[in-house]
């Protein structure tokens, strides 16, 4: 990066530290923070959407749909997320390619031959000759989807509880005014449920932040992967040999996580105050008293 860094083994002291901390690998480490934040930013709304779909399905009067919604939440939540990540993504990838092969391949032989998964080259996602950037985007997309699926199950549970917590009287009043089921759902239930869902959802957000080390299992290089990689002992085969420095890298991560948690707590507390405003709950009552 800098000219002084051309021969790392001949420099020492501050220059060495500066060169070391700006090496290509460290730049990737810094970028991985962006990757993690981007993944969080994409996963949170996706998980919320899945949770909403799951909760709505669970409330449905159509029994199979209701069972599907409840089953999704119960099964995915019963399994530790790490175990889910270890086999689900490969299955998802193969499933998608199988579906594509039905559409694009001429030869429809069964693709699972023993342990090998074989589809025609046109059915690969992305195609073998696509540039690396597409492979990256696809891998990232799979990771976002898998995270959203797991956390969507938890969100479904929170939202299902929140929908049930909206006072019955409000819904009955709306019906008495002649609103249809859809109208009651859209105009009364959904706007009212957020205040009950927020504590659960904020905790879910905190769990999500701390689940990001599992990204590595999904093929995304996150901050923990890089901290482990950079901190490990380096022999002379590397440009910047050093002993085992994992402790320092992990302490840096600890600070990052604590700061990020603290910031999230502050923001969530503000949202909570706003949602509680004017609500007929204990929280709303406390706000009213504080203002008076």
């Amino acid at each position: 990066m800098f000219e002084a860094c051309a021969d790392p083994k001949s420099i020492e002291g501050l220059t060495w530290a500066m060169c070391y901390l700006t090496s290509g690998k460290h730049i990737e480490f810094y970028w991985s923070f962006v990757t993690v934040l981007l993944l969080l930013a994409l996963t949170a709304p996706a998980a919320l959407a899945m949770g909403f779909a799951g909760a709505t399905a669970a409330r449905s009067r159509f029994i199979p749909l209701s069972l599907l919604g409840k089953g999704y939440a119960a099964i995915v939540r019963g399994v530790p997320d790490i175990i889910f990540f270890l086999f689900f993504v490969i299955a998802l990838d193969q499933g998608l390619e199988y579906l594509k092969s039905l559409a694009v391949c001429e030869n429809h032989s069964w693709p699972w031959q023993g342990l090998e998964f074989r589809v025609c080259p046109e059915a690969k996602i992305p195609l073998g000759r696509s540039s690396a950037i597409w492979h990256q985007a696809y891998g990232f997309g799979l990771a976002v989807f898998t995270f959203a699926l797991v956390f969507g199950a938890f969100a479904a549970n929170v939202l299902y509880g929140a929908m049930n917590a909206v006072p019955r009287a409000q819904l009955e009043t709306a019906e008495a005014y002649g609103m249809s089921h859809g109208q009651v759902f859209r105009r009364i239930l959904v706007p009212q449920m957020w205040v009950y869902a927020l504590p659960g959802l904020s905790n879910l957000w905190m769990i999500l932040i701390k689940a990001t080390p599992l990204l590595f299992l999904l093929g995304v290089r996150d901050i923990v992967y890089w901290a482990r990689e950079l901190g490990g002992m380096k022999t002379q085969a590397y440009e910047y040999p050093h002993p085992d420095w994992r402790l320092w890298y992990f302490l840096a991560l600890l600070v990052f996580y604590l700061v990020f948690t603290k910031l999230s707590e502050i923001v969530l507390a503000r949202i909570s105050a706003r949602l509680n405003h004017g609500q007929a709950t204990a929280g709303g009552e406390a706000l009213r008293k504080a203002a008076a």
Binding site: V224, R246, L253, Y257, L258
Partner: peptide, 14 residues
């Protein structure tokens, strides 16, 4: 705050 604010695996490592 310390134990809720950090991932479990970092706690294991430290």
């Amino acid at each position: 705050f310390l134990f809720r604010g950090s991932p479990l695996f970092i706690q294991f490592f430290l």
